[in-house]
């Protein structure tokens, strides 16, 4: 184990190039629904338990299945209402299990990226070849079912190895959602390729809000609005990114749907927001700011070399 993986360089906001989003928008806003499959009886990973209760964990399994049977449609309708395209964090096996959901996403011209094969198969303890297998399966399966080449990666259940970023970059992906260290995209140090982090958000993630922090739905709507307001304020100086990562099994429960609707209505009601997707943010940043950022990092390192 290492104290730090050296995945990025320190660069305070004052030293960064100014980001201007298309149409001078202050905030690039994207919504990332996790469309997932959890296995009732996954094989054991030595480093992580799948379910809190003994198998079958009926409550945990059924809670998640509600998203697939009921929730996605409700969530999609709310997003349709406000013209928001989803960037889907996909359990790739769902292409096989529930093609009807995938079809509904394709009809909406939503975008797919990989969230592993199942959310119950973890990367912990995977060899490089094994982790490459997860990504290759993701690239091939999404291509076959949707025609899209995935651009992003959110590791399954946020389980990583020291090599995750190198592998994703080497296999042609453009961005990771796994680093929660910034409100702007930034270059990720990988062995090969140009690879960036774009802000996903654990703070705004419905599961963290509802199941970890146990926040009530109407307060979640307040949090989303407050988060947006501040990023929009900061965005007057340099463009920021706001992401809402979602799980239909949480956000689209009947008692929580209205809160999501309120927040989307508020955010998309502003005309200085770029309502966009993960891939579009990544492409725009890579084309316009990646090189400038790399230069700024070099300058900053020269000016403020680490003492150790």
């Amino acid at each position: 184990m290492k104290p730090d993986l050296g995945l990025y360089d320190y660069l305070p906001w004052s030293e960064r190039p100014q980001i201007r989003w298309p149409n001078n928008a202050k905030v690039a806003f994207w919504v990332a629904p996790n469309i997932e499959y959890y296995e009732i009886e996954p094989p054991a990973n030595p480093l992580r338990t799948s379910w809190g209760r003994p198998i079958p964990d009926v409550l945990g399994y059924a809670e998640r299945d509600h998203g697939n049977r009921v929730g996605h449609w409700r969530m999609m309708e709310v997003m349709d209402k406000y013209g928001v395209r989803g960037s889907i964090s996909l359990s790739v096996a769902l292409l096989d299990h529930h093609p009807e959901i995938v079809e509904a996403c394709k009809q909406r011209n939503w975008e797919f990226f990989s969230h592993g094969i199942y959310n119950t198969r973890y990367s912990y303890a995977a060899t490089e070849a094994q982790e490459r297998k997860i990504l290759q399966d993701s690239i091939d399966s999404v291509k076959k079912h949707t025609g899209q080449m995935i651009a992003g990666y959110l590791a399954p259940a946020l389980t990583h190895t020291e090599r995750t970023m190198d592998i994703a970059a080497d296999m042609g992906l453009k961005y990771t959602c796994d680093l929660f260290i910034d409100d702007q995209p930034f270059p990720v140090n990988v062995k090969k390729g140009r690879f960036i982090s774009i802000p996903y958000s654990l703070e705004m993630n419905d599961i963290i809000v509802y199941n970890t922090h146990n926040i009530a739905p109407r307060r979640y709507a307040d949090m989303l609005k407050a988060n947006f307001d501040r990023l929009r304020e900061d965005g007057a100086r340099t463009g920021t990114v706001m992401c809402i990562p979602l799980h239909a099994y949480a956000v689209a429960q009947g008692h929580r749907l209205q809160a999501f609707d309120d927040a989307l209505k508020y955010i998309t009601g502003h005309d200085d927001v770029w309502v966009t997707t993960g891939r579009e943010i990544a492409d725009y940043y890579l084309a316009n700011y990646y090189d400038e950022y790399v230069e700024a990092i070099k300058r900053f390192k020269k000016k403020h070399p680490p003492k150790a």
């Binding site: 499959y37 030595p46 096996a93 096989d96 299990h97 303890a125 190895t161």
Partner: peptide
């Protein structure tokens, strides 16, 4: 490092439920 190869096999990866 090193998971059994079976960890990357998915016998129930097909249409419908995994039970």
């Amino acid at each position: 490092d090193g998971l059994p190869d079976s960890y990357f096999e998915y016998p129930k990866r097909k249409y419908g439920m995994d039970h």
